[in-house]
Write a protein that binds this DNA or RNA. Structure first.
Length: 536
DNA sequence: TTAGGGTTAG
């Protein structure tokens, strides 16, 4: 028996590095390696870089990049790891910087380098860059490779160059199922249902992923029946298939169906639900107001030790808020170890709709203090919070600073919140000023809001002129007519009500009744506006 | 190594 080098005990620092759970642990390991001179060693440094491949946040990856730059003899593996980490990060463009650095150095790229660099191009739709790398690959002495070419198909397809993608696909010396899926996935991403279906029918081979693409494709287009048909037809289902179907129903607003599929999933015991499943299920519970099912999910998550990431925390907070349990929403929020911007947003929104505007604003301050960057949804949430409590000065300040301080330019929704608030407080001049700042084709929502306020303040003339503006802007929409008709009705001007209704019929616009749902004692009830409990 | 499923607003 011989003793090989592999049987020697690995260095403790390398074991520590391999097991690192955070960037700061990697930094500790790096610091240790710097002291001992180990950081210039290719093998040791590659362990540090491996962390970035598994956790490709931009900060982590750029840290790995700086380590790589200081290795004495980088090899193909370390270069490829870095390119791959960038390709999987939210800043895939930088993968090409890493690729360029490799080209300038002594180590020649291999098929892996090309695959990862192209994957980066696909991620940021860099078709020009992809084309150049395609050229470099053809000029290199590397053999044709199915991984490189599959990724190339994906680059062209995701950038919308479908014909070129198809040409590459057709001319491949060897194709596999991923080649087809690379094109199919791009059709799905772009919402091209017919093209996807045609390709799917024509494909030489399909796997469960091809079927999943089709389920998602129909679902994303709101064609839930098509999605269901596909789902029922597929020869093998995996976890992703179930998740695609549950989320498809939930996103289409078919919340009851979403829960039904979820129950089928549990009954069939085919796949164990995961975080993806629960996010969609909780969204369905939230929108149905079904607290008991939402609670059930939370218990399941706890019992099975499902990791609560930012998405899941968001969904839980939202479910509790929408089901009327703001106390529990806060509890989940406070207990969540992983929060992202959306988690903060759903907490702020929850507090806001429960009339706790001041608490919502406090959470907003906390969010900024903790270094989270508010986005467009955040400002809708905080402005709505101001709206609910009537905090005009705060709202004005937020509206003014959202662009200049936080880099979020106000959109029509933000204008909507402000116009709502100003209207509610009777500040009609300031409100109209804001409405006039918005492009006319987007102004109708604002006009409607302001019109409602005018009515409440008894400003009939202004309301009438606003309703006229509304009709001019969007003659095919119901809102202008309805507002106008209600306005006349409230003043007893019945002839004019009849006239508006006649016009509506002539233009073939109909008013849809409002609808909402809530769970009482475990039963979900549906209301139509102006009616009692349907399920009673 | 390449292709797949998730939340928050109004």
């Amino acid at each position: 028996m011989t003793t090989s080098c592999c049987s020697s005990t690995p260095l403790p620092i390398l074991t520590f590095t391999e097991r690192a759970k955070s960037l700061s642990e990697i930094q500790q390991a790096h610091a240790f390696m710097l002291k001992t001179g180990l950081s210039r060693d290719t093998f040791s440094a590659s362990k540090l870089i491996a962390y970035a491949v598994a956790n490709p946040e931009p900060k982590t990856v750029s840290y790995a990049h700086s380590i790589l730059n200081r290795i004495d003899t980088p090899n193909v593996f370390t270069h490829n790891s870095l390119i791959r980490a960038y390709a999987n990060s939210s800043t895939p463009e930088i993968a090409l910087t890493a690729f360029r650095e490799m080209l300038l150095g002594p180590v020649a790229p291999d098929k892996y380098s090309f695959t990862f660099a192209l994957k980066a191009c696909a991620a940021f739709r860099g078709v020009e860059e992809g084309r150049q790398i395609h050229g470099l690959f053809l000029k290199s002495n590397l053999d044709s490779d199915v991984f490189v070419e599959n990724t190339l198909v994906n680059v062209y397809a995701r950038s919308g160059w479908f014909e070129v993608a198809r040409k590459v696909l057709d001319e491949m010396p060897e194709r596999d199922v991923v080649s087809w899926n690379s094109l199919l996935s791009a059709f799905v991403e772009k919402g091209l249902v017919e093209e996807a279906r045609k390709l799917f029918d024509e494909m030489e081979e399909r796997n469960v992923e091809s079927w999943n693409f089709m389920v998602s494709c129909y679902a994303a287009a709101g064609l839930v029946e098509g999605a269901r048909e596909c789902f029922d037809e597929m020869p093998v289902k995996d976890l992703v298939s179930w998740n695609a179907m549950v989320s498809g129903y939930a996103r289409a607003g078919c919340y009851g169906e979403a829960l039904e599929v979820f129950n089928e999933m549990l009954k069939s015991c085919a796949e164990e639900p995961d975080g993806f499943t629960f996010v969609s299920v909780l969204s369905a519970c939230a929108n149905l107001g079904s607290l008991s099912q939402g609670e059930w999910v939370r218990v399941y998550i706890d019992k099975h030790g499902v990791e609560i990431d930012g998405f899941l925390a968001t969904a839980l907070v939202d479910m509790y808020s929408k089901c009327g349990r703001i106390d529990k929403a806060v509890e989940v929020f406070r207990g969540a170890s992983k929060k992202d911007v959306s988690t903060w947003n759903s907490m702020i929104t929850g507090l806001s709709v429960h009339g706790l505007g001041n608490d919502a604003l406090e959470i907003f301050s906390e969010m900024v203090y903790e270094g989270f960057k508010p986005n467009s949804v955040t400002f809708i949430a905080v402005l709505s919070a101001c709206n609910h409590v009537g905090l005009l000065d705060q709202a004005r300040k937020l509206f003014e600073t959202m662009g200049s301080v936080y880099g979020v330019e106000p959109s029509i929704e933000h204008y909507g919140c402000m116009v709502d608030l100003l209207g509610r407080l009777g500040r009609f001049e300031e409100a109209e000023e804001l409405v006039n700042k918005v492009p006319p084709d987007e102004a109708s929502v604002l006009l409607e809001s302001l019109l409602g306020a005018c009515k409440r303040f008894g400003r009939t003339e202004q309301a009438e002129s606003l309703a006229n503006r509304l009709l001019e802007l969007s003659p095919g929409e119901t809102s202008g007519y309805v507002q106008m008709s209600n306005l006349y009705a409230s003043n007893g001007r019945w002839d004019e009500v009849t006239e508006v209704r006649r016009k509506m019929r002539a233009e073939r616009v109909n008013k849809k009744p409002g609808c909402s749902m809530i769970e009482v004692d475990g039963v979900v009830h549906e209301f139509l506006a102006g009616e009692g409990l349907i399920n009673d």
